[in-house]
């Protein structure tokens, strides 16, 4: 596996990232064992792998929420030392601020930026419209469905126009139909904003539909097992894609890679 040369043209790059955790019993568990991952500007990159392999941990390291024990992460060439609005994040559980209205949530980052009230209201409304949620500005998160909450979360992050959008199994908590609908929405939004996206999932159809490239991770201690280019032409039709033979080949290949990981797990440390 060749290490990507230090490129100024990479939006986000992780080089030889390592992370070790100490369990309650004092045991050292290596979660990430030298990971090289990168995303070019405007690319949609997915991280797939068996449950608990550490792909979310890598995402948090990319975002600056977790410090790696080895290696480094650079965003636009600058070393990432902590979280910041350049790297937005969307979580599976939405993480909306429950005490704020939908508008309050979306405006949050703009308030932190110091955007004046009239302009930030307009911008917030624009991003809500982009996720097809115009009209619910005054609602509280508890009144929304899961799909709506996630769209608010996406709008909230996009409103600060981050360089990179990190998504941690964002549709995992949603039912199949909402999930499919949001995948299409995300594609539409990405086609118009062309934000660089790093997307964690373990749904292969989702990864193939959304991504330009897919990193496949091994079981813990995680390494990059393969990097797959998704050569299906854009714009992609979610239904029609399923009939594309290229899709079937890719799906088969990915499933094979993951299956060998699952059987390799000797059950000694079933990761959570």
């Amino acid at each position: 596996m060749t290490v990507a040369a230090p490129g100024v043209d990479f939006k986000l790059q992780a080089r030889d990232v390592r992370k070790t955790f100490v369990t309650r019993g004092g045991k050292q568990v290596v979660a990430l064992d030298g990971i090289d991952v990168h995303a070019r500007p405007g690319e949609f990159v997915s991280l797939v792998g068996p449950s608990g392999c550490g792909k979310s941990t890598l995402l948090y390291i990319l975002g600056g929420f977790v410090r790696p024990d080895g290696g480094s992460v650079a965003c636009d060439g600058a070393v990432v030392r902590g979280p910041g609005p350049e790297r937005g994040i969307v979580f599976q559980e939405f993480a909306l601020f429950p005490w704020k209205t939908v508008l309050g949530n979306v405006e949050y980052g703009l308030i932190e930026r110091g955007v004046p009230p009239a302009e930030r209201r307009e911008r917030a409304r624009r991003y809500l419209a982009m996720v097809n949620l115009a009209g619910i500005e005054g609602s509280y998160p508890k009144e929304l469905s899961g799909g709506m909450k996630q769209r608010v979360a996406i709008a909230r992050t996009l409103a600060v126009e981050p360089d990179v959008l990190l998504m941690d199994e964002p549709f995992g908590a949603l039912d199949a139909q909402t999930r499919a609908m949001l995948q299409v929405e995300l594609m539409r939004i990405w086609e118009s904003t062309r934000t660089t996206i790093v997307f964690v999932t373990h749904a292969l159809d989702e990864a193939i539909f959304l991504s330009d490239r897919i990193y496949v991770f091994s079981q813990r201690p995680a390494r990059v097992k393969a990097v797959i280019d998704v050569d299906i032409e854009r714009p992609r039709d979610r239904e029609a894609m399923l009939d594309d033979p290229a899709y079937a080949t890719l799906h088969h290949r990915l499933a094979q890679l993951l299956r060998s990981e699952e059987s390799a797990d000797d059950g000694s440390g079933r990761a959570g």
């Binding site: 910041g84 937005g88 559980e93 980052g109 932190e112 909230r156």
Partner: peptide, 14 residues
Amino acid sequence: IDNRLVWSARALGT
């Protein structure tokens, strides 16, 4: 408190 709320705030500029 869900720590993801704090992380979200940090990723939004706080």
